[in-house]
Design a protein around this nucleic acid. Structure first.
Lengths: 155, 155
DNA sequence: GGCATATCGTTATGATCATAACGATATGCG
DNA sequence: CGCATATCGTTATGATCATAACGATATGCC
């Protein structure tokens, strides 16, 4: 028999008619991202680089010098966050910063020679990691996934 | 004229033959997750709940009392992380904890009455948020996406 | 020129995340 | 029983994240 209690422990399972956590895109996306990150860190973690850090370096490699804010937008990071990433990479001398002479608000950021070398070394590794993450999918499915995710991200 | 310098600023754009950041699943997943989270926080942020917090509450609602570690596994969080989430939700009296009498290692966690009420209030909101995130996709595409993401997450 | 507005970078706060090391408790098996 | 092994929760460290508030600098427009 269940005794009446002032405590509020309620341990019954409940059925939510139309709801399941597994049906929420956010939850699926979070887990898939965990998997992708894990695959990447397994391979480039030895270089003490995280996925966002490598994305930052790769963007600079592709685009050349960029202002901090623009760089942030191009790797989907808020100003406060890209700042921290830049500081860490700068401390490791993978990139350098200088003031824009014509617009004193801007901090121009660019890879150092060491940064370029590291990116070039890790580009093929990153490609392998993506392949590993996508291993469960065939070519057609990968293409589908990319299209669907791009449309989601753009809203 | 470019003067020879000991500094290593290199601002040339570079073409990486087989690489594009946009082609890396991890990057796409990160941005899609940002979008999904943003949609959720827009709606349930007023309740001061984050997506992982709500996932935790929803899992407890669905399953009833769970040990902290098992709860963490069921919402894809490491022991150290689920601990912090539980502490925050406990402080707000949305869940309660007690020791398992037969296994002293375990902390059993369950929703309070207030927690149950909040979950029931927010379940339909969460469903709306998922719908909003999925808005760019039609029914068939949503089903595709779910299948693909599930296979990715499971590896 | 001068002022309203916008952009850039910074600071502060708080919540996720992953990882490694650790003590406490259970469990399996000889 | 006794010990090796496994599991649970904790602690510590460091990296992402988002948000809000703020000063400094540019820009647009009168």
């Amino acid at each position: 028999m269940q005794r009446t209690s002032t405590r509020s422990i309620i341990s019954a399972k409940r059925a939510a008619p139309d709801y399941s956590l597994e049906d929420q895109v956010g939850f699926l996306l979070r887990r898939a991202y965990q998997r992708a990150s894990s695959n990447l860190v397994d391979r480039i973690g030895a270089y003490d680089l995280t996925a966002p850090q490598f994305a930052t370096l790769a963007r600079l490699y592709e685009r050349g010098a960029l202002s901090q804010n623009l760089l942030g937008r191009l790797v989907a990071m808020e100003p406060a966050n890209i700042r921290d990433v830049v500081l860490r990479l700068k401390k490791r001398r993978l990139l350098e910063t200088r003031r824009d002479p014509t617009d004193k608000r801007l901090i121009l950021i660019d890879l150092t020679i060491a940064g370029v070398a590291l990116v070039e070394q890790l580009l093929p590794v990153e490609i392998e990691c993506t392949a590993k993450t996508l291993a469960p999918l065939n070519a057609a499915e990968r293409k589908q996934l990319y299209g669907l995710l791009s449309r989601l991200a753009e809203g």
